[in-house]
């Protein structure tokens, strides 16, 4: 019996969280037109989220490209000619690893930062103080962060895709022994612009998820320093999980419905 009661409580808690997220979403949608009044704050967030993440994205993507190159070459052995290496690295980077890995590493960094900042404001009553002077915290805090993350994640992903392919190319030459020319001809041979566009489309949603989870968990913070820690952790875990789930749904939608192969 105890087990059922516990499962029931978890289930109710889960439903409550979903409800809370939708309530926040609804308020965001209603206040969305006010983003134009908050351009200044949005630009500041774009700098924090976008420019601030560049070093992380740089290191991640170069190494991801490098690994893609080495491991593909290993798997190709005896089955697939190495002139297809560029095609394979290019496809996997633009379709999948570029968008998803960028979202996961940037998501960890950004949703944690947002949750910690908003959570600290919550536990030190700064959010209440805002409400007291009739400033809507959703307009003032959430909108600029959501807009900035939604815009910056695709930008970071373009950057990441590019760097990953460069990384793959360099490793292909130095380690595998595939020349730049061969790699490049493989890359262009099977190139479909839909791959890149589809991959980038996903990242708009990922960026939105990252900021939303950061803000939502920040607002839910209770208690003191420990509460902020818990919210930060929840923000990172929930944004990573949601990114992976959304990735599947979006891949299905984009590549089986919108850009369906003929």
């Amino acid at each position: 019996m105890k087990i059922f009661a516990m499962l029931g409580r978890y289930f109710l808690g889960f439903i409550g969280e979903i409800g809370g997220i939708f309530i926040l979403l609804w308020r965001v949608i209603r206040l969305a037109p006010r983003i134009f009044r908050n351009i200044g704050k949005t630009l500041i967030q774009m700098e924090k989220i976008g420019i601030g993440s560049i070093p992380l994205v740089l290191v991640t993507s170069v190494f991801v490209g490098a690994v893609a190159s080495v491991q593909s070459a290993y798997q190709f052995q005896g089955y697939v000619p190495l002139r297809f290496l560029g095609a394979f690295v290019g496809k996997s980077v633009t379709l999948e690893v570029g968008p998803v890995l960028t979202a996961l590493v940037v998501g960890g960094r950004v949703s944690a930062a947002i949750a910690a900042e908003v959570g600290t404001m919550k536990v030190t009553e700064q959010i209440d103080a805002m409400e007291m002077i009739a400033i809507d915290p959703v307009e003032y805090l959430v909108l600029p962060r959501l807009a900035a993350a939604t815009v910056m994640l695709p930008v970071l992903t373009v950057f990441a895709d590019f760097l990953a392919i460069i990384g793959g190319m360099i490793v292909a030459k130095l380690v595998v022994g595939v020349s730049f020319n061969t790699f490049e001809s493989g890359l262009t041979m099977f190139f479909r612009y839909q791959d890149v566009v589809g991959g980038l489309l996903k990242t708009f949603v990922f960026g939105f998820i990252i900021a939303l989870m950061g803000c939502y968990n920040g607002f839910r913070t209770r208690g003191g320093a420990e509460g902020v820690g818990i919210s930060t952790m929840k923000a990172v875990v929930s944004s990573c999980l949601l990114i992976l789930v959304a990735n599947y749904l979006l891949a299905f939608l984009i590549f089986n419905v919108i850009f369906a192969p003929d």
Binding site: T124, E125, Q126, D128, A129, M130, I133
Partner: peptide, 20 residues
């Protein structure tokens, strides 16, 4: 309506609640 009402109120929070 709450926002409109709060224009008539001032509040000092226990922890001051300054925007840091």
């Amino acid at each position: 309506k709450l926002f409109d009402m709060r224009m008539h109120f001032g509040m000092l929070f226990q922890g001051a609640a300054l925007f840091d």
